[in-house]
Simulated assay, not measured.
Amino acid sequence: MNIRRGKGLEASELSELAYRSKAYWGHSDEFMEACRDDLTLSPASIERRKASRRNRVYRVHRQKIAVVGSEDRKGS
């Protein structure tokens, strides 16, 4: 397993991974659509988290399997 910081250029791919991971648990389509904005990462948010060491991408055999991050809810 490889663990590294996410990259801003991966925003779309990591957002889709976050969405698929949440959907795995059988949530309704309506719930998933309501969560979409919260699960969407922008390049800027990834870079901000990267600078503060609050994101990680987990890979197994070169395949991304998880993205973990936290957002400062105060907006800083």
Rank of each mutant, 00 (worst) to 15 (best):
S28G: 02
L17K: 02
S15W: 04
E47F: 03
S76Q: 14
K64F: 06
S45W: 02
N55A: 03
R36N: 09
N2I: 12
I3D: 10
C35R: 11
A66C: 14
S28H: 02
R62D: 13
K74E: 09
W25S: 10
H61F: 09
L14W: 01
A44K: 14
R36P: 02
R49L: 04
R73Q: 05
M1T: 12
R5I: 06
S42Y: 11
G75H: 07
S45C: 09
N2S: 12
R53M: 13
A44V: 15
T40I: 06
H61W: 08
S70Y: 08
R53C: 10
E33G: 07
I3V: 15
D29K: 13
S15Y: 08
A51V: 13
R53A: 13
G75Y: 06
L39G: 02
S21H: 07
L17R: 02
H27R: 04
V60I: 14
A44W: 14
A34W: 14
V57S: 00
S76W: 15
Y24L: 13
K74T: 08
S70D: 04
R62C: 07
K7Q: 11
L39F: 09
Q63E: 14
I3C: 11
V57E: 00
I3E: 11
L41N: 01
L9F: 08
N2Y: 06
S70C: 09
K50P: 00
A34K: 15
K22R: 13
G8H: 03
G8C: 04
K50W: 05
S52W: 07
H27S: 08
V57Y: 00
P43I: 02
R5F: 07
A34T: 15
R53T: 10
R49P: 00
R20Y: 04
V57K: 00
I3Q: 08
S70G: 05
S52Y: 09
L9A: 15
F31M: 13
D29N: 12
V57G: 00
I3N: 08
E16D: 11
R56A: 12
S70F: 06
R59W: 03
L41C: 09
E13M: 07
D29E: 14
R53Q: 12
E16Y: 06
R54Y: 10
A11F: 02
M1F: 14
E33V: 09
A51E: 12
A66V: 08
L41G: 01
E16P: 01
S21L: 06
A66G: 14
E16I: 07
R49E: 06
S45L: 12
R20I: 03
S52V: 13
D38Y: 15
E47H: 04
P43E: 02
R36T: 06
S15D: 07
Y24P: 01
K7H: 09
K7F: 03
G26S: 05
R53S: 11
S76T: 13
Y24E: 08
Y24W: 10
N2Q: 14
L9M: 07
V68P: 01
D72V: 05
K7W: 02
K7S: 03
L17S: 03
Q63I: 12
S28F: 02
Y58I: 09
S12W: 03
T40F: 02
I46D: 00
A34D: 15
G26A: 05
